[in-house]
Simulated scan of single mutants.
Amino acid sequence: MMIAFGIQLSIDSGKNGVVTFEAKTDELAKHYIRDFGAIQVFAKQSGGPIMLMIADNAALSLFNIYLS
Rank of each mutant, 00 (worst) to 15 (best):
R34C: 06
I11T: 08
I33K: 08
L62G: 01
A4K: 06
G14V: 07
A43K: 10
T25F: 01
S68Q: 14
N16T: 09
Q45T: 12
A23E: 06
I39D: 04
T25K: 01
A23V: 05
V19G: 00
S13Q: 13
M1D: 15
M2P: 15
D12K: 10
I54A: 02
G37Q: 06
S46P: 13
A43I: 13
I7N: 04
K24H: 12
Q8N: 07
V19M: 03
S46I: 12
F63V: 04
D35F: 13
N57C: 07
Q40W: 01
D26R: 13
S13N: 14
M51R: 09
F63S: 04
M53C: 14
T20V: 10
G6Y: 08
S68T: 13
N16F: 14
R34H: 14
T20E: 09
L60A: 13
F5W: 14
K30W: 06
I50L: 00
K30I: 08
T20G: 07
V41H: 05
F42A: 12
L67M: 11
Q8I: 08
L60M: 13
S68E: 14
Q40P: 07
M53E: 13
A29L: 02
H31K: 08
G14Q: 02
M53I: 11
S10T: 04
V19S: 04
T25A: 04
I65F: 15
D26K: 08
I54V: 10
E27I: 09
I33H: 08
E22P: 06
Y66T: 03
V19W: 00
A43W: 06
F36N: 03
V19H: 02
S68K: 15
M1K: 15
E27P: 02
S61D: 07
I7C: 08
Y66A: 14
V18L: 10
N64C: 04
G47P: 03
D26A: 15
V19L: 01
A55W: 00
M2H: 15
L60W: 11
Y66K: 11
I50S: 00
V18S: 06
L62A: 02
E22S: 13
L62Y: 05
S13G: 09
V41R: 04
T25G: 07
I3C: 12
L67V: 09
D56M: 00
D26N: 13
S13D: 11
M53S: 13
S13R: 13
S68F: 12
E22Q: 14
P49D: 04
L28S: 12
Q8E: 15
Q40G: 07
D35A: 05
I7T: 01
G47E: 08
V19E: 02
A55N: 09
A38C: 07
G17F: 00
L28F: 13
A29T: 05
G17V: 00
G47T: 07
L9D: 15
A29Q: 03
F5S: 15
N57F: 08
I39Q: 06
I39R: 01
M2S: 15
K30M: 10
L67T: 10
G6Q: 13
G47S: 03
P49F: 02
L28G: 02
A4H: 03
T20W: 00
I54H: 01
A38D: 00
L67R: 14
L28W: 05
A29N: 08
